[in-house]
């Protein structure tokens, strides 16, 4: 479904590229961990996938189409197939839980009827039924992240991109969040998680792509975090 072909991304203010000559394929329905120390290029790969940035050299394909040549409209359609989950949740403070999730559908111009239908389902999936009226400031890190996940899945995305989703969540909640991703993946959604949480990676035995200084140093089908860093 997604293919990186010799992708390099250099930023102007840095000598070495953030991502160097990366080639990889992601099939539909895969669960992938992107691991590696800070500055290894995980976030850059996420941004490339979201087409927030363009590769300096190399090609990037989504279902046989070159993402680089996308028009503004294509980009928009493409992004609507992707659900993003952030380390800092990025919830709207002045909206409550329900409104934050509904927002993802409002932005896409979906009808109020459809929104009323889908938001409770998404909230139930992440186990937040009953918390609809709470505001982000009243939530724990784990709960806030589950709102973030509900917001990402409510539009039935093809792909979930999660950048350090457990970075601001305690250990117990982190486990639950990873379980959530696993169940989302079991329903056919491709999930790509960039993370530092080595114990969770080890436990889940999913495909692991390890990065170091912008290069892929390992790509294992049922891997662990490994301790070579």
């Amino acid at each position: 479904m997604i293919e990186f072909r010799n992708v390099t991304k250099s930023y102007n203010n840095s000598n070495h590229p953030a991502v160097a000559n990366v080639s990889l394929r992601v099939e539909r329905g895969e669960f992938i961990f992107l691991v590696g120390p800070s500055g290894a290029g995980k976030s850059t790969i996420m941004k490339l996938l979201f087409r927030e940035i363009m590769p300096t050299t190399g090609q990037l394909f989504f279902i046989k189409r070159n993402i680089i040549n996308f028009t503004e409209r294509d980009i928009l359609k493409y992004r609507r197939l992707i659900g993003m989950v952030f380390q800092d949740f990025r919830l709207l403070k002045q909206k409550n839980v329900y409104e934050n999730v509904a927002f993802a559908l409002e932005v896409l111009g979906q009808s109020p009827r459809k929104i009323r239908q889908k938001v409770p389902v998404a909230l139930e999936k992440v186990g937040l039924t009953g918390k609809e009226k709470a505001f982000p400031s009243e939530l724990s890190g784990g709960e806030a992240q589950r709102v973030g996940i509900a917001r990402a899945i409510v539009k039935d995305p093809l792909i979930i991109l999660a950048d350090e989703p457990t970075g601001n969540v305690d250990r117990d909640n982190s486990k639950q969040i990873m379980k959530l991703f696993e169940s989302i993946n079991e329903n056919g959604t491709t999930v790509i998680v960039a993370t530092h949480a080595w114990d969770l990676v080890d436990r889940m035995q999913k495909r692991v792509i390890a990065l170091k200084k912008g290069r892929i140093i390992r790509d294992e089908q049922y891997g662990g975090y490994a301790t070579e860093y």
């Binding site: 979201f50 928009l76 993802a104 896409l108």
Partner: peptide, 16 residues
């Protein structure tokens, strides 16, 4: 500004 950033991540069109 923050809301606009989030809207972009959620796939909102420029006109929206």
């Amino acid at each position: 500004q923050e809301e606009i950033g989030i809207m972009k991540y959620l796939g909102a069109s420029n006109s929206f």
